[in-house]
Structures are given as C-alpha cells and as structure tokens.
Computed example of a mutant assay.
Amino acid sequence: MQDSNSDQVQFFLTPKHPCSYLDRNNAQTLFFDPREVVSPQIYQNLTDQGFRRSGSHLYRPHCGSCRACVPTRVPVEQFTPRRSQKRVLKKNSDLHVRLEAATFSKRHYHLYERYISLRHTDGDMYPASEDQYRSFLLSPWSNSLFVCLYDGERLLSVAVTDEQPRGLSAIYTFFEPNEEARSLGVLSILKQIELCQELGLPYLYLGYWIKDCDKMNYKTQYRPTELFVNNRWVLMT
C-alpha cells in the first residue's frame, strides 16, 4: 500500500506459532513494518483491511487456508440496541462516562491488574505488569482515549479506544470483575457506539470474530454488523 507521504511499505510474516483462540499450532501473523511512521490515514486504511493495533504494532492474522478470524465493525447510524442491551443501559443509568487521556496511571493500572488476575489467568497477559500494560495498550502515534465508567468516584471500567478518521477502534476493555450483574463489557461497547454517533463517525471497529470461539461471539451481537470477508465488508443483519 502507499500513503501520500510515503513510499511503498513492507509487511513481515511471523513463523508459525500456537493460535491464541483455536487448538492449532500453525497460526501466523502479518505485521506492518514497525519502522514506518503511521499516519492517521495509513492507520485507517489498514483498519479497513482488517488490521488491529497492539501497543505500537499493527497486525493481522495470516494463517494459510484458515480464515477463522473475521474483522467486525458496527455501522453505528444503523445500530438498534436489542432488548437485552436496553436492559443493560437501564440497569446502569446510575453510572457516568468520563473520557480520559490514554496515559499510564496507577488508578487505571490497578483495575487492569485486578481484571487480569481474576478473569484471564489462562491468557498471555497473566500475570499483569506495568511494562506489559504499557506495551499492550499504549502507543505514541495513535489518537487514543480511555472511555471510563464511574460509579460516583469509583472507577468500574476502562475501554481503550482509538479515534480514526472514519470510526473508533475498540482496542481492549477491562473492568471490575466483581460487578458481573452490570454487564460492563456490553455497556462499554454501547457507550463507544454512542460516542461514535456523537462524534459523527460511521463505524465502531470491534476486532476479530471467531465463530468457533465462544468468548468472541459477543462481537456479532451488535446489529447490524459488518464482516470483512474476501477483502470486502459484508453487512450481516
């Protein structure tokens, strides 16, 4: 691909490695050249081609014949909350949203550490550390913000979100693990959809949906959803 301010750029393919989501050992990942300056337009173009951000790196699964990881996005102007999602909004009407700078703070990190320690002990992010938190969620070149949910002055949830020319990209959400009844993960996505609408941005990008991975099924619960299939976005109603 090309950008008006750059020459042809390179991509790098990793060796085969264990898949983080399915029981297979031949996964591969395509990375955008980390030496390149990532302009907002390059980031948007790559997002529209199914790439995601992890820290300062942009990547996309590139696993031979496997196409299980399907990029998803919500066209927010067409979005209508389901009955269950309306109940989540009503249940949490006592909470308020704050948009905060995407910088390291002990308050955000302590919630992240608690979330990982109680919800994701089987994942690559356990055990949490400050260095791992910074390298995973923060980037010097992305236009990121934290969409935070508060109960009074008590921080309950942080959605790490990147603002792009044509949408918001939901990078990662962590929340108070002992507040299951509030469905904070669902609420955080609904609040990001609302933020897209307020900012006049057409899409919320939710990352990869994997049909055979239960923990990824939530990504198609926000209808309509668009899936990136055969290099084009397809509407799923």
Rank of each mutant, 00 (worst) to 15 (best):
P75N: 07
V76H: 02
N45Y: 08
R87M: 11
D48C: 10
S54E: 06
T47Y: 01
N45P: 00
T47Q: 09
F79E: 04
R83M: 06
V74L: 10
S84P: 00
V74E: 01
R60K: 15
F79A: 07
Q49G: 05
R83I: 06
P81D: 03
T47M: 13
Q49E: 12
L58V: 06
C69S: 11
N45L: 09
H57M: 13
R73E: 04
F51R: 05
V76K: 02
R82T: 15
G50S: 02
P61F: 07
P71D: 09
L58A: 05
R82Y: 06
T72W: 04
N45W: 05
T80H: 13
C69V: 09
L46K: 02
H57Y: 15
V76I: 07
V74P: 01
Q85G: 05
R87D: 11
S84K: 14
T47C: 11
Q49R: 15
A68N: 13
Q85N: 11
L58P: 01
T80R: 13
A68C: 14
R67D: 11
R83Q: 13
Q78G: 07
D48V: 00
P71C: 10
G64I: 03
Q85D: 10
C66E: 06
C69G: 09
C66S: 11
C63D: 08
C69Q: 07
R67G: 00
R82M: 11
R60A: 13
R67K: 15
T80M: 12
R82V: 00
C66P: 02
G55V: 06
R60W: 03
C66Q: 05
F51T: 01
H57Q: 12
S84F: 05
R67Y: 09
L58N: 00
R67E: 12
C69F: 08
K86M: 11
N45C: 07
K86S: 11
S54I: 02
F79Y: 15
R83L: 10
Y59W: 15
F79T: 02
D48F: 04
V70W: 03
Q85H: 12
G50N: 03
V76L: 04
H62F: 15
P81H: 04
L46D: 00
R52H: 05
C66K: 04
S65Y: 04
Q49M: 14
R52G: 04
Q78K: 15
R53Q: 11
T80I: 13
